[in-house]
Design a protein around this nucleic acid. Structure first.
Lengths: 277, 277
DNA sequence: GTGCGATTAGAATATTCATTCCATTTGTTA
DNA sequence: TAACAAATGGAATGAATATTCTAATCGCAC
């Protein structure tokens, strides 16, 4: 009623409700309690649904929103929805918005600010990684690698660093590795010896490197067990893969730090080594 | 259309979309890509909003839902909403606790536990990075690169992924880059043309790759301005460098994720590009 | 018990929204 | 090139929804 609630976080709203609870009328108190106990219902439901579940008429819900300073139910609902999106993607939108604004400010142009931006970007990509990769996939991947005679690595363009890193670690651990880098001629020749006894790890992000998209199906067709690391289930290296690791929210090519895939391949390699004992 | 999609989990829906993607028409493929990339928008938005953000007419969105076997957009949206509620249910605390317990349990050898170990290790290495790198060094480094005609990159062995990544980004930004990788003969020949007009970025960690230790002094002696990224001030690529980035606490070669140096070179490259305007 | 202000419920309304339909375009086969 | 089928975009439609309005009710002081 009195306070102008422009943009409000969910936690702030909780505090505000708790504070005013005593001052509210009977019905409104009842709604306050329901709303604090069932934030998800408020976020996703309609006025009628919330009204029914909390046992009050729809108009009371709207009055409640008004009493809190919102223009209406819809406005209040936005705050509850923000809590949901925060739960799945740690401040994805906020991050983007912050980057956009910083980019244009004078501060954002200083190298030090650029570094801290990439650091925080990398941090959140690591959080996402550990959330989105499931144990089952990792187990399956290491099982494939454990049985392989030779391990073929396919990662070109922007993904090449990931492939070289995996190659390095696997070789350190005594595995036989063929890095498909296309030096000294066609990449087809390098992969010509691959069979079902071997294994392939393919890495590719948007925009998918043409050679990768071309070679991958050939190897799959030849029966080579395949592990794919990519950023979308629609990428050209998904179909036919035994295991797919999807790493979401990859920024545009020039801005990606490759932190998440680097960590992932590292864990695959070391996990393989530990499981072998 | 054909499949009766009663109750469906979000992951199942993702799989279904990926599977049918090829069989869909152009517009519908475009929508498929958008919804996989922006599940939150679909969960919370209206048909009109989703349509606008994905750049298609609203009717196409409905047709997409139909093509997937749903009765309409609203029905499909329920699946996307289920993902949001699932995301908040096991709260941060629970998830964090689970990670902690896994880490210490006997299951430490399982790949999933290995991954979470590398992730947390990478997290702390990023924190260290942003603390130990100072603005002055970054400014000096970008200044050197800005004046360079060609940028030579020297990073062999375990550091090679970092060098290739830097090469990729710098080239994307239109810089002339020479990656010293030793293919097709001696690495000396590749670097033969470097002069004081150019610049060198050298990356090396223990155990320092012999070729790096050999080539580095030569280039310095020839007057090439140099930026070094290494793990100790006693490393062979420190003496003579204009700027030295010391990244501490690098684990042994097979265990390092290269997360910190990857971030650093990324920031250097982008910082250079932004400063150039 | 009476009168008054605050509160409430439910119907009425206006808006937003998903869906459908059809004319037009696009792509394909003959 | 012509004819056909599939796909597309945009307007029309009807349902669902939030909000407002008003009459009725409640609580309370006197």
């Amino acid at each position: 009623m009195n306070k102008a609630q422009g943009a409000m976080s969910y936690d702030e709203l909780r505090g505000a409700i708790a504070q005013r609870h005593r001052a509210l009328s009977g019905r409104l108190q009842q709604i306050a309690e329901f709303v604090l106990d069932h934030p998800t219902d408020v976020a996703l439901g309609t006025v009628a649904e919330v009204a029914q579940r909390s046992g009050v008429p729809p108009s009371a819900i709207v009055r409640f929103a008004h009493a809190l300073g919102f223009g209406g139910f819809t406005e209040m609902q936005q705050v509850f929805r923000s809590r949901l999106v925060a739960g799945v993607a740690p401040s994805y939108k906020a991050r983007l918005a912050r980057m956009k604004s910083e980019e244009k400010s004078v501060l954002g142009r200083q190298p030090a600010a650029v570094l801290s931006r990439f650091v925080s970007e990398a941090q959140s990509s690591l959080v996402t990684l550990s959330q989105s990769v499931h144990a089952r996939e990792l187990d399956a991947a290491t099982a494939i690698l454990a049985k392989a005679r030779d391990i073929y690595l396919l990662g070109l363009g922007g993904s090449f660093p990931v492939a070289t890193h995996l190659a390095y670690v696997l070789r350190k651990l005594g595995r036989r590795v063929v890095l498909l880098d296309g030096t000294g001629g066609s990449i087809h020749e390098q992969s010509h010896a691959a069979t079902g006894e071997d294994a392939l790890v393919a890495i590719s992000f948007r925009n998918y490197y043409p050679d990768t998209a071309r070679l991958f199906p050939e190897l799959v067709a030849r029966g080579v067990p395949t592990i794919s690391i990519t950023d979308s289930l629609l990428s050209p290296i998904v179909e036919g893969a035994r295991v797919v690791f999807e790493i979401q929210d990859m920024p545009e090519p020039a801005l990606r730090t490759l932190v998440a895939p680097m960590c992932l391949v590292q864990a695959m390699a070391i996990g393989l080594d530990l499981a072998a004992d």
